[in-house]
Design a protein around this nucleic acid. Structure first.
Lengths: 335, 335
DNA sequence: GTGAAAGCGCTAACAC
DNA sequence: GTGTTAGCGCTTTCAC
């Protein structure tokens, strides 16, 4: 770090004390017009850039909000971040992002790193943190929001939807459409807890009708269109008699659609495909698949809004949680 | 920011001076085993978390590396970030991300904010920054890497590919395949400078054969599959006689494929579709479209590697730039 | 409206 | 191996 111009230098050039310079640069409550101008000019001239390290250390507060998501290559989280950015805009706060790669230990490391910068709030994904992560977050003395999932115990603020319910509702919907022979196609179940919860809910609802999955395929690695295609092709080759497939998400379902098309299977006529998320690109596909829209951008935005509020004043239990319902969209699969 | 335990408290509990505690916690060069253990235990006990604000202010150096990309909802940049994360891993550095939404003024603000945290390096996307951004970056006294694009003047480190050339090469390739009546489909041209450069290169190459675009469609907003579908459908409806379409990127091209399928147009037989990026999801599509793979993960990784090196020692002009060639992949479009 | 003094929590540099 | 002193660049507090 080369030594950059400091406030003292700005003040010297402007011919005032560093306190006046400080006040002027921050938007001046009580500084004379003349001095404000002098300071601003001086600052501009020597290319002064605030040193937030010093500012924050001195003021014992930062404008940082730490955000941890499991992945960036998943559009869903990109949209969550967009929602957060939106909501954070005018607040003067600054988001800092970390990516855990669906790994709880990595997440703990990221949380620790972030807390070392003394953020004034934290947003983390899901409710399944390591014991240590929870301790760190609880001990930080700042508002913490857990997002996306509400199936479990929250530390503080909780905004999201029940994935178990989402799975249940999709099962119920498909049953009501007269489907009865189901397969599941997923991936990376160990890590994506929420996909797992959806599958659980799905199966639970099936068992209420004394049904269970006829087929199931999962694979290592992260969900992707090609993986959905592969696994679906595999099921189709097996000759299993099924009339619907539930996927861990839309990407996988889209892959399934292509596998079905290649195999000459009519979707949704012969085979109904259902995903999760309600991604935009579904609308571009040759067949509009069934899905459940997760209001992810909204989740990001609302969590941020509540977090910002909590930074001002303590919130009641009710104010600290917000549960969304996933909206099922059958696309072209309406019977 | 509630007052969290400080080093002094750890030291007190461990019964040593804060310097010994400081040394012990940092990985101790010259501290006795016994004291290291005492300090670690004390730290653990009271849940001490380093205050990086103080550390950095005091040591006059941070482990921060600022990264600015235009978008997160574009997988391309998510992958760039992944490459950066990979390369940064063992370095002990910490990336901080900012998103400019393809807006140069917004980018300037982000750069200023980031610099106020005194990062020890910066990575920004593209070569087209505002005058002010350039000044800020040049004045920061730290290594700066501009990535993705090499068509222009770099501030310091430059890693990427020539998008003009990428456009040219695609044109050349399609010409060699015997195509001669071209359309272009793109979006948000004002903001995505690199897509614009590709189109320029494409047209330049066409004009060398005394050809030019037969049709062209662009739309506001960001590229997306649905937008590609719309614009392509529009061209097809117009009845224009074309045998190839060049798209601003793969998402748009995929949308084009669906439009063609709906219209009963044979791809690539009647109509060759070419995109850019070489996204993974292309492999899941019913037809593998033509594209040019951009080594974006590698770009992120290499830029980071060079940046980290530059933080240790001054680099020569040659060492500071790295140019990749996009690899053209014709998919099913081989004549 | 302005300035001087003190201190945020840590580490560099030097002593012991 | 360990402790002491000084200071990083800013803001808070209080005096004027």
């Amino acid at each position: 770090m080369r030594t950059k111009p400091t406030l003292v230098e700005v003040a010297a050039l402007a011919g005032v004390s560093k306190m006046t310079a400080s006040r002027a640069l921050r938007g001046a409550s009580d500084v004379s017009e003349r001095n404000i101008e002098k300071v601003l000019r001086a600052s501009e001239e020597i290319g002064y850039v605030t040193n937030h390290l010093a500012t924050s250390l001195s003021s014992q507060t930062t404008n940082l909000i730490g955000v941890v998501v499991p992945s960036l290559s998943n559009v869903v989280f990109a949209e969550v971040l967009a929602g957060i950015s939106d909501a954070i805009q005018e607040s003067g706060k600054q988001p800092v992002f970390g990516v855990s790669n669906y790994n709880a230990e990595v997440e703990t490391g990221i949380i620790r790193d972030m807390l070392s910068w003394r953020p004034s709030g934290m947003i983390v994904t899901g409710l399944e943190q390591t014991e240590q992560s929870r301790k760190l977050l609880e001990g930080a003395g700042i508002p913490v929001a857990q997002i996306m999932d509400v199936d479990g115990d929250a530390i503080d603020i909780n905004v999201g939807l029940s994935h178990v319910d989402a799975g249940r509702e999709m099962a119920r919907t498909l049953l009501n459409l007269g489907r009865s022979r189901f397969a599941y196609v997923g991936s990376a179940l160990d890590n994506d807890v929420r996909a797992q919860k959806r599958m659980q809910g799905f199966c639970e609802e099936l068992s209420r009708e004394n049904l269970s999955l006829v087929e199931s395929r999962t694979d290592e690695g992260f969900s992707s269109l090609p993986m959905g295609r592969e696994l679906t092709a595999d099921i189709l080759r097996s000759g299993a008699k099924i009339d619907a497939i539930y996927y861990s998400n839309d990407d996988m379902a889209a892959g399934g659609l292509f596998a079905a098309m290649s195999a000459g299977v009519d979707v949704p006529g012969q085979l109904l495909l259902a995903g999760f998320n309600g991604l935009e690109f579904l609308e571009g596909l040759p067949v509009r698949l069934a899905t459940a829209r997760s209001p992810r951008r909204q989740i990001g935005a609302e969590a941020t809004r509540i977090l910002l509020e909590a930074m001002k004043q303590p919130l009641s239990r009710d104010e600290r949680s917000l549960v969304f319902r996933p909206e099922i969209d059958l696309g072209d699969s309406i019977s």
